[in-house]
């Protein structure tokens, strides 16, 4: 029998009311993308396929093709997620399993960095990227985004590695594995739920990232979808229909990923590995 609180219909109504503004926002987005005009949440006029012309025309209003931006966003998100999972796993394993000098201060530093507002680093990062010749490149932003998200990833993965039994690793060592082999063939497969959770989380976070590409990318050829969207705000007369359609297009992969990935995302909060 499900455990429902008393007065659960009342709670349902409260939750519904809290969610309502977000629901209304999404509804507006969908309607505006589909119709010529929308007053409030009431569509006026006819269906407007021309809102979606950005998909077929090479360039809308001097912008690069949406497909270039899509490719950039996909590369950006995938690269950030891959880097983050890889580095966070290795770092977390070392922190969870090995003793080394300054381990405790290092842990404290990671926690501090996790809480640090990244925006305050923008100018310093700008200089660093200029120095490295990575300003205005996708690679540069990928590195910055991955670094800023790493502390969280390391903490998360450390939680998963902490739950692995020592016996299993000892057994692998006696079976003839090196530390490196133990990591790749025993420890890593066992934290698969953590990897999937962190991977999904990193993908979503990178997909939605705006301030870093906005600050460090100038050339239109390196635009991500977030920059593509933002470019509408600069115009004197904003084509809301077009903008809403692009917005929907931008959000679609997130909906899909969430649909398939929420099972793993929930693991972030329960942090559970079942042996």
């Amino acid at each position: 029998m499900p455990l429902l609180p008393r007065n659960w219909p009342l709670w349902l109504v409260v939750l519904f009311l809290i969610t309502l503004p977000i629901g209304a926002g999404i509804l507006w987005l969908v309607l505006t993308a589909l119709y010529n005009q929308v007053h409030g949440l009431v569509p006026m006029g006819k269906l407007a396929p021309q809102n979606w012309r950005f998909l077929f025309e090479g360039s809308v209003g001097g912008r690069p093709s949406i497909w270039v931006a899509l490719k950039n966003s996909a590369v950006f998100a995938a690269a950030v997620a891959t880097l983050e999972v890889l580095i966070a796993s290795m770092a977390a394993y070392a922190i969870s399993r090995m003793k080394f000098p300054l381990r405790t201060p290092y842990l404290g530093m990671i926690l501090t960095l996790h809480a640090f507002p990244a925006v305050s680093l923008l100018i310093a990062i700008y200089y660093i990227l200029r120095l490295l010749g990575l300003f205005d490149t996708l690679i540069g932003v990928i590195l910055v985004k991955a670094s800023l998200d790493l502390p969280l990833g390391i903490w998360l993965m450390k939680g998963f590695f902490d739950q692995l039994s020592w016996d299993m690793e000892m057994a692998a060592l006696v079976d003839g594995a090196s530390r490196w082999t133990v990591f790749w063939r025993v420890a890593l497969p066992l934290v698969r739920p953590g990897i999937l959770a962190l991977g999904t989380f990193a993908l979503l976070s990178a997909w939605g990232e705006f301030i870093l590409p906005f600050t460090f990318i100038v050339s239109a050829k390196s635009w991500t979808l977030a920059l593509y969207m933002q470019s509408f705000m600069k115009e004197a007369f904003v084509d809301y229909g077009l903008m809403a359609a692009v917005g929907l297009f931008y959000a679609l992969p997130v909906f899909l990923l969430f649909l398939f990935g929420q099972r793993y995302l929930l693991n972030i909060y329960s942090g559970g590995v079942k042996g």
Binding site: D167, M168, M170, A171, L173, V174, A177, S178, L190
Partner: peptide
């Protein structure tokens, strides 16, 4: 020597089988 160079087999209390 590293465990792998010792030629020992070991059974653990928890068995420590690889669940995957």
């Amino acid at each position: 020597l590293h465990p792998r160079d010792r030629d020992v087999g070991m059974v653990f209390q928890s068995y420590a089988l690889y669940p995957h």
